[in-house]
Design a protein around this nucleic acid. Structure first.
Length: 676
DNA sequence: GCTCCTTGGGTTTTT
DNA sequence: CCCAAGGAGC
């Protein structure tokens, strides 16, 4: 694959003015982007004046890797390759003054924001018991922010959640400001606002970039488009690459209109369609085309054409229940690895050729257990990441306070971890004192001994503060982070808290901490960035905690995080109504801020299908066991209308005979299906 | 009175 | 797995 096809070449050669590249799945999109950047560099464009934005950190890192052989190590590292969010961080780090935060800011991740909102709601006397859907508030505020809707111009609506969100929104903005904090949305929105208001900075950032490229453009939101428009306003050298058929982030405010209306937004744009598919065998593409053709949503018409020719049919597998579905996949993977009957041509497959994809992360839980038992090694994408683990977040919070003692949220988090007698009462006392004397939380805490708290609590607090100060001083004199952290955690009793736990959970926590320490060790040996920058990278999930592609493991991934990946063999599991499409998109709850509809679920299914190179399994269970009974499950509507000549139907036999209960359920199910 | 620990119910998707 | 309620203990 050394040459480029005519469409790809056209995209690479067009270097001036706006261009939209409609890149179907597997059409060599990344190749076009990397070659186009190389061509620009070839033509004498300075690498540091090229900005290429991708959606995930993984994609950005991979892009840089791919640039190295094309333009060399040095130039590859001069390019601005980042996500929107890390671009925002760099912008704000450089323009902190314009942010109005006196030269420092902290980044709140989603967990921080939820915590803050919960606190605000409690203060406002709104009960937040577990029946209350906190995400309903978080996502509303996020959507408003990304659409530049300030509290004043949010429209009035009647639903309870809308009204609560509307009431909390201004308080939330105030509190962020008082804590010198930005949330993820601010990382895009604030740079836009700054450029709109400040002519000098607008000029500066516009002059910096001669060419801008955006990958996965179908997933950009209003704020992200605004950011891009600000930067390319004068030269209009913008090239966006995307596929409206793979737009799957409507729920978080992505506006597919950005790609559908591109030619209106950027007049005179050249449009290139990439429809030749270099990834999947013909039957897989026939299924993919059939799936997406049923979409009712407006789309840029495309047909994927196979470059790799024919192959095994897509296997649609029915199993009696979800347990059998799991067991079937495990058995099949074993067989594929041995090169048994399941494997076309009897070719033995590697674990790393295989992926299991699912709609929601909870589905992975069941698989993990089975894979462990079956001795199949796996890695998981998405789900709870290393840096989302409680014990890891705690340690990060310690370091955030070392880095910036005014980081109030982190300080409060560690104050009573491990328990030091700082309950809600002591916290309130400190807070009230600060409010009365115009002092920050940290400053008030330093006067702890004069406050009305138990002697023991005061002493514990002072000990914590001095341990933090010791760590801060040590880092300033150049001591390694790993060593400083170890000592800090010992002095503050964190280590003994973790080591006291003799259970399996405690064991896992220690492992996670060991992983984190490895990150610190790498940080110490490289010495390339500051602690503040490391913490920012961790907040943005740019720090992954080491990945090793050479390991022979199967991949478990949600459909969302599988975008951009490819595997020889894909098991797309849980193809049943309620799961795919997910129940909440079929009948949206009142709490859902941005109902996205069934077509987004169809595109999600389409994304899953197009991840497969050679062999695709679509599996479903006919029933789900719960409380001794088996509730029927029905095949996903996306399995309807697939071309007969491209698919094969299988029924995986149950391991034991069906119980009378199950027989009855099965009969019910058949009847229900016939009636439909 | 205040803090700590256990228990039990609920979980779409992620930068 | 994460959080809020509720009861025991200081």
């Amino acid at each position: 694959m050394s040459g480029l096809n005519p469409a790809q070449a056209a995209a690479v050669e067009h270097t001036d003015g706006p261009m939209l590249v409609l890149a179907g799945a597997g059409s060599g999109k990344t190749r076009v982007i990397t070659h186009r950047i190389a061509r620009l560099v070839d033509r004498g464009v300075r690498p540091s004046s090229i900005l290429a934005v991708s959606f995930t950190n993984k994609a950005a890192a991979e892009m840089r890797e791919r640039m190295i052989p094309l333009v060399g190590h040095e130039d590859a590292h001069r390019l601005w390759l980042s996500t929107f969010h890390s671009f925002g961080v760099r912008f704000l780090q450089e323009e902190t003054r314009a942010l109005g935060y006196e030269g420092r800011f902290v980044i709140f991740d989603q967990g921080d924001c939820v915590g803050l909102l919960r606190e605000l709601m409690r203060e406002e006397g709104i009960p937040t018991d577990r029946s209350f859907d906190m995400m309903a508030i978080v996502s509303r505020i996020s959507l408003w922010k990304n659409a530049f809707q300030m509290p004043g111009n949010v429209r009035e609506i009647d639903y309870e959640y809308d009204n609560i969100a509307r009431a909390i929104y201004p308080l939330y903005l105030e509190r962020l400001e008082s804590m010198h904090a930005v949330d993820f949305d601010d990382l895009v929105v604030r740079p836009v606002q700054i450029m709109r208001e400040r002519e000098d900075l607008r000029k500066k950032w516009r002059a910096r970039f001669r060419h801008v490229m955006i990958d996965e453009f179908q997933d950009t939101n209003i704020a992200q488009l605004a950011l891009v428009k600000q930067i390319v306003d004068e030269h209009q050298n913008i090239c966006v690459v995307g596929d409206d058929d793979q737009s799957i982030y409507g729920w978080r405010g992505a506006d597919v209109g950005n790609i559908l209306d591109f030619e209106k937004t950027f007049r005179g744009a050249k449009v290139v369609k990439l429809e030749m598919n270099y990834r999947s065998r013909a039957p897989i593409l026939e299924v993919a085309n059939a799936v997406i053709a049923q979409s009712k949503t407006k789309r840029h018409e495309k047909q994927l054409r196979p470059a790799r020719g024919s192959g095994p049919k897509v296997r649609v597998v029915n199993t009696p229940d979800t347990t059998a579905e799991i067991k079937f996949v495990a058995r099949e993977i074993h067989d594929l690895r041995k090169g048994g009957d399941a494997s076309p041509g009897g070719v033995p497959r590697k674990y790393k050729d295989i992926a299991i994809l699912y709609r929601s992360n909870t589905q992975a839980k069941l698989f993990e257990e089975e894979l462990r038992v079956a001795g199949i090694p796996y890695r998981m994408f998405g789900g709870t990441q290393l840096f989302d683990r409680k014990e890891v977040k705690d340690i990060i919070a310690y370091l955030r306070v070392v880095n910036d003692p005014e980081d109030e949220l982190s300080l409060r988090r560690i104050l009573n971890t491990p328990a030091r007698g700082f309950g809600s009462k002591a916290l309130k006392t400190v807070r009230a004192y600060g409010l009365r004397h115009g002092l920050s939380f940290y400053q008030s805490l330093r006067r702890l001994q004069t406050l009305d708290v138990p002697v023991r609590t005061a002493r514990n607090g002072m000990d914590l503060l001095s341990a933090l100060q010791t760590a801060r001083d040590a880092l300033e004199t150049g001591a390694p982070l790993e060593e400083v952290t170890q000592r800090l955690l010992e002095e503050t009793g964190f280590t003994s808290m973790i080591f006291e736990d003799q259970t399996k959970v405690g064991e896992r926590r220690r492992e996670n901490i060991e992983f984190l320490m490895r990150t610190f060790r790498r940080f110490d040996s490289e010495r390339k960035i500051s602690l503040a920058q490391l913490l920012a990278r961790i907040s943005l999930r740019e720090e992954t905690g080491e990945e090793d592609d050479s390991r022979d493991e199967i991949t478990l991934s949600s459909l969302h995080s599988s975008k951009g990946l490819e595997f020889n063999i894909v098991f797309l599991i849980g193809c049943v109504e309620g799961k795919l499409p997910h129940q909440r998109t079929v009948d949206p709850k009142l709490t859902d801020a941005a109902p996205t509809g069934v077509d987004e679920e169809r595109r999600l299914f389409y994304v899953g299908v197009t991840r497969a190179r050679d062999l695709l399994y679509l599996t479903r269970a006919s029933g789900k066991k719960s409380r001794g009974r088996t509730a029927p499950l029905f095949p996903s509507r996306f399995l309807e209308g697939l071309p007969d000549e491209s698919v094969e139907m299988y029924t995986a036999s149950a391991e034991k005979e069906m119980s009378p209960d199950e027989v009855a359920n099965f009969a019910d199910m058949i009847l229900a299906k016939l009636r439909k």
